Simulated assay, not measured.
Amino acid sequence: MTKGKVETGNISDVTRVYLITGFLGSGKTTLLNRIIEKFPKDQKLTLLVNEFGEIGVDGTLVEGDDIDMMEISKGSIFCVCVKTDFIKGLYELNTTVKPDVLLIESTGVANPSDLKKDLKLPIFNDRFDFREQFCLVDAAHFADAYEVYASLEKQIASSSVFIINKTDTASLEKIEETKKIIARFHPAPLFFETTFADIPLERFLELDGGKETLAASLKDSSSGKPKLSDTELDQFLDDLLDSPDLEITPPDMLMSVGYRWNGNDITEIEKIANDLPASVVRAKGFVEDESGMHIFNYVMGDWTIEITDIPRNRIQHKNILVFIGPPDSMAGIETASESGSWESLGVFQPYSEES
């Protein structure tokens, strides 16, 4: 778990929690940035960004200065592989940071069904008030991914607001097919059809910093209650992980692999993108040539390479691409890399016994 600038400052009694979920490449970080842009300056916002792979990219894409942020990689925060990091992060927010709002961006293969139960654990002293779960849906690729990955069904079943994103890349028939699939799980789903995750956020978030919210922050429910020692917190987590109700088996078996690019011709990026096996669901990263810094985005066969204005000092993993796919795609990714200046950084499987 890595941390950005996490401050204490003004203390709130209740932390309103919003979850942003959706499959890999659906636009979750874009929605996150829209919320950051409109968030009231007089309220404290904390982000918890969860990435599937060992090398994180999404945290770099979060816009805004002085953002309070925790990053958890190497698996889903809702599965046993990083459950400990997630609960410890929430406990720090409960006892030290105490923000007004917590935005959680989950990994694209997460099963978020247990989030509400996690937020009500007794060590949090009723701090977290779960408000809304946004499910981002890639209009062009959702129907195909739904047939293969069980996590999409879990995300749909536990969500309440569905953002059909990237509608400019999909036909009307594809969009209607996507809505029909979602409607199987909800009698009256709330849909927004849009591009760049542009929805009326004021319908769901208290963006005016209203008096009711400020008044609620005057009392601190956890004040006077002793903070658990590290040993006590570890014991609580050990007992939690031993619970028979804990979900241990992940919904989808996916792996990630990182490759360092040692070339200087951007056409090598284009070639590997075209040569990837069809089973690769996601790839992303920053690459630099003499023309500048580029961001590479790949979602189920569709990809872009675009110049980015993100400052170089914010990019921790330059010239490294992360590829995500099922185990049988790893050999095909390696083959695709053989035609360019690529160096494997190793395969990461968050649900294996070795991880």
Rank of each mutant, 00 (worst) to 15 (best):
K227A: 03
S243R: 12
P226K: 15
K225R: 12
I248L: 09
E247S: 11
L201Q: 01
G210K: 15
N274M: 12
I272Q: 12
E202P: 09
V257T: 15
G210W: 01
P200K: 06
G210A: 13
E212I: 08
I248H: 08
E270S: 13
P244S: 09
T231V: 14
E212V: 08
S222L: 06
I272K: 05
T249Y: 05
D245V: 14
F236L: 14
L241K: 14
D239G: 06
S217L: 01
N274L: 08
F236I: 04
T267K: 10
D220E: 08
S243K: 07
D208K: 14
D208Q: 12
E202R: 11
L201I: 01
D198R: 10
D230Y: 00
E206W: 00
M253D: 14
A215W: 10
K225S: 04
S217A: 15
D242M: 10
A273K: 00
A215E: 11
N262G: 03
T195P: 03
L205M: 09
Y259K: 00
L237V: 03
Y259P: 00
D230N: 04
V257Q: 12
P244M: 07
G209D: 12
S243T: 09
K219W: 11
K211N: 10
T213R: 12
P244K: 10
W261I: 02
L201F: 07
M255C: 10
S243I: 02
S221E: 07
D252E: 02
I199V: 12
A216P: 02
D220A: 05
P244Y: 05
G209R: 02
L233D: 02
M253K: 13
V257N: 13
D245F: 08
K219L: 08
V257G: 12
K211T: 06
S221W: 03
P226H: 14
D275P: 05
D234H: 13
M255G: 10
L201V: 02
L276N: 06
S243P: 00
E247W: 04
D220L: 09
D238Q: 13
D239M: 14
E212M: 08
L214V: 07
T213I: 10
L246A: 02
L207N: 06
Y259F: 15
R260H: 15
D208E: 14
D198F: 04
L214I: 07
R260W: 09
K219M: 15
G258Y: 04
L237Y: 00
L218P: 01
T213N: 15
L205Y: 03
E270H: 15
W261T: 02
E232V: 00
D265G: 01
D245M: 12
K219N: 11
F204R: 11
F196R: 10
S221G: 02
G209Y: 02
L214W: 07
E212L: 11
G209F: 04
D230I: 03
G210S: 15
D252P: 03
F196I: 10
E206H: 01
S223Y: 06
N262W: 03
E268Q: 03
T194V: 11
K211D: 13
E206I: 10
A273C: 00
W261L: 07
R203M: 11
E206Q: 05
D198N: 14
L237Q: 01
D234S: 15
S217Q: 10
D234C: 10
K271G: 01
T267D: 04
T195D: 13
L207I: 13
F204Q: 05
K225E: 05
N262M: 07
L214F: 04
A197E: 05
M253Q: 12
